[in-house]
Amino acid sequence: MTTSSQTKPRETKIATVQRLLGRKSGADIGALQKATGWQAHSVRAALSGLRKAGCQIEKHPSPKEGGPPVYRLVRDTAQA
């Protein structure tokens, strides 16, 4: 007797980080912490790891006065 489950594989936390960084609005450290359940230093380490893996991540000032910086993945227009 074989049972087949049709559940989707769960998204990894690093994939969640990449998805949030890929949004037009990007994401700040707090949003990444909330999405992954990680502490701030772990989120920063993940950003560093993504950079080492070849992802280009830009840091932008907050759209809100005095808010945290926002991080975004750089889109390579040559490959698009």
Rank of each mutant, 00 (worst) to 15 (best):
M1P: 07
T2Q: 08
T2H: 07
T2A: 13
T2I: 10
T2F: 02
T3E: 09
S4L: 15
S4T: 15
S4N: 13
S5G: 02
T7H: 14
T7Y: 09
K8Y: 07
K8D: 11
K8Q: 11
P9A: 15
E11A: 03
E11P: 02
T12R: 15
K13T: 10
I14C: 01
I14K: 15
I14W: 02
A15R: 08
A15W: 03
A15Q: 13
A15M: 04
T16V: 15
T16F: 00
T16A: 08
T16H: 01
V17R: 05
V17I: 15
L20S: 02
L20W: 01
L21I: 10
L21S: 04
R23D: 01
K24E: 00
K24D: 11
K24P: 01
K24V: 05
S25I: 04
G26F: 06
A27T: 03
A27L: 01
A27P: 03
A27S: 03
A27R: 00
D28F: 05
D28I: 00
D28T: 07
D28C: 14
I29R: 06
Q33R: 13
Q33L: 01
Q33W: 01
K34N: 12
K34P: 00
A35M: 05
T36F: 00
T36N: 02
W38L: 09
Q39H: 15
Q39C: 05
Q39R: 14
A40K: 14
H41T: 10
H41P: 04
S42Q: 15
S42C: 05
S42T: 13
R44N: 09
A45I: 07
A46G: 00
A46L: 00
L47D: 00
L47R: 08
G49P: 03
G49N: 15
G49C: 04
G49V: 03
L50E: 02
L50I: 09
R51T: 09
R51Y: 06
R51Q: 14
R51C: 06
R51P: 03
R51F: 06
K52L: 15
G54P: 05
G54V: 14
G54Y: 09
G54F: 13
G54D: 13
C55T: 03
C55W: 12
C55I: 07
Q56K: 13
Q56R: 15
Q56Y: 04
I57M: 06
I57F: 00
E58K: 14
K59N: 03
H60Q: 11
P61S: 13
P61G: 11
P61L: 11
P61I: 08
S62T: 06
S62F: 05
P63C: 03
P63R: 12
P63M: 07
G66Y: 02
G66W: 09
G67L: 07
P68Q: 12
P68M: 10
V70G: 02
V70P: 01
V70K: 02
V70E: 02
V70R: 12
Y71V: 01
R72I: 09
R72Q: 11
L73I: 13
L73G: 04
V74N: 00
V74K: 11
V74W: 04
V74Y: 07
R75H: 14
R75S: 12
R75K: 14
D76N: 14
T77Q: 09
A78T: 13
Q79D: 07
Q79M: 15
A80S: 10
A80Q: 07
